[in-house]
Amino acid sequence: MKMLLRASHINVIVFVLFGLARGAYLIDFSHVFHRNLANVKREVDTERCRPTEPFRCPGKENVCISIQYLCDGAPDCKDNYDEDPRLCTAAKRPPIDETANFLQTLLTQHGPNYLEKLFGRKARDALEPLGGVQKVAEALSESETLMDFGKALHLMRSDLDHLRDVFVAVESGDLSLLKSLGIKDTELADLKFFLDKLVSTGFLD
């Protein structure tokens, strides 16, 4: 991540989306870095932050830092926000809205209980018992590991073990478990691609 962020000399086109916490916003640099910083949140303050230091630390004080100092192991914001584990985890995951759209597409195409095959019984009714599609997408983005994800959504141990089995099967290339869950061959590629993204960012560690 640190090496990636130091590519800040590249001309970056930044667009800002309404964010998730502290009245914050999202920045997406994915077209430049080929990894996602769409979940990196900051307060919008284009007048007080220079283009070379576009990330404004939350709070009343006007502290702006360069993107290269995000998640570099050295806190630059007063409350260590630029090194917050959730922020740093989210920075390397697919964008929250992309994940939410993917989950919603699966539910629309295959029915409101489709994701019960992955997340267990609490994933019925379009993920409503888990807080809805958006909350699950946020948890997938911000949870450093599978165990953190389970805690965030209060998953039962049996459901968490099942989900771990699914991820291990994807990681090892053994898709027989996915097939045994009733996932069709035509669905396997997209689902594997999505789960692989999480595995590659340490979700199973």
Rank of each mutant, 00 (worst) to 15 (best):
C57G: 11
A24H: 11
R86I: 08
R93A: 09
K151T: 03
I65L: 11
D165E: 15
L181H: 14
Y81S: 12
L127P: 07
G73P: 10
A24N: 11
D148H: 15
V40K: 01
I96H: 01
F203K: 02
H162I: 05
P58Q: 07
F149P: 02
L181E: 15
D76E: 12
I10H: 14
Y25A: 09
D125A: 12
Q109I: 07
K122E: 14
L103V: 02
N62D: 14
P112E: 05
F33H: 08
C77P: 04
G202L: 07
C64D: 05
Q134P: 00
A74Q: 13
L153P: 02
S143L: 05
E187G: 05
V63L: 13
L107I: 15
A7F: 12
H154P: 00
D165V: 00
D84Y: 09
D79M: 07
P51N: 03
M3F: 15
A137E: 05
K135C: 03
G73S: 06
G150H: 01
A38G: 15
S8I: 04
H110W: 07
S200G: 04
Q104H: 15
T46I: 13
E142V: 06
F29A: 10
G120E: 04
A139G: 02
L155D: 03
H154G: 07
L107R: 03
K117N: 05
E61R: 12
S172N: 14
I183M: 14
G120S: 12
A152V: 02
S158N: 04
L198D: 00
N80F: 15
H9V: 10
S172K: 15
D79R: 10
N11M: 09
D125W: 11
A74N: 12
V40C: 05
L181Q: 15
F18D: 15
E43A: 10
H34K: 12
